[in-house]
């Protein structure tokens, strides 16, 4: 019987079941291909949502970094530096007053010292080193500042992805010499922060207002002076 059935299958008289079976297979393949294609579209879409969120998180982080740095008030402040002898030199630096945000973390990195060749050998002194003073100064540098700093920027929203930011500084420091590269998932971007601080432009006002700092007589701490007199 099987032989007979095979014969009929291979018979060339009338409609052959073989053709129907072949057609069934072709239809199944065509249907599978259409389904697979539609499925690929859906999975690609999911991937695209993830990529778009990476892009949005990275661009938001970039905007935040720029806003944070730009919100720092550029000031001219007198900076004190021990010159290796008994005297102290004072110079004006282009500093950014930290506003409690990002600049609080990277303030020392981005504050530029005008005469970097000499005064780069100094530490910046934070505002909290002075009693109630709104100004910053610097003292002899005790630690080497890093050429790069890595930041993790994360949010208390599960939809916003964490971003890794790498801040690279040039030797001159200063916010205008800051290169930022951001990485979030598969998305990365890099940009330069170009904040120009015009010393001459703000000097006339700031010169009057600027506090001067110098070491106290024991050389144990930096003190603020007003008009040459030590305030404490």
């Amino acid at each position: 019987m099987i032989h007979r059935f095979k014969e009929k299958l291979h018979g060339n008289r009338g409609a052959s079941t073989v053709f129907a079976i072949i057609l069934l297979l072709i239809c199944s393949f065509a249907g599978s291909a259409a389904l697979a294609s539609a499925n690929t579209n859906i999975s690609r879409f999911d991937k695209r949502v993830e990529y778009q969120q990476s892009y949005l998180s990275a661009s938001s982080a970039a905007r935040l970094i720029i806003d944070e740095i730009k919100s720092c008030e550029p000031i001219t402040a007198t900076v004190a530096n021990k010159n290796g002898e008994a005297d102290f030199d004072f110079a004006y630096g282009s500093l950014l007053r930290p506003n409690g945000g990002l600049c609080q973390l990277i303030w020392e990195d981005i504050c530029k010292i005008t005469e970097s060749a000499f005064y780069a050998e100094a530490d910046l002194v934070r505002e909290d080193s002075f009693d109630g003073s709104a100004w910053q100064g610097m003292a002899l540098r005790s630690v080497d500042l890093p050429d790069e700093r890595e930041l993790i920027i994360s949010a208390d929203d599960e939809n916003i992805m964490a971003v890794t930011a790498r801040l690279s500084y040039s030797e001159e420091r200063g916010a205008e010499n800051l290169h930022v590269s951001l990485l979030c998932g598969e998305y990365g971007l890099g940009f330069d922060v170009g904040i120009e601080v015009d010393i001459s432009g703000i000097a006339p006002i700031s010169h009057e207002a600027a506090a001067e700092f110098k070491f106290n007589t024991d050389r144990t701490e930096i003190v603020r002076t007003d008009g040459g007199e030590e305030s404490r």
Partner: peptide, 21 residues
Amino acid sequence: SKNITITSDSGSVSVGVEAYG
């Protein structure tokens, strides 16, 4: 409103932002 935390090896700060979407 959301809070963004920026962390580095020297510490961390929190910045208040507005989320959109």
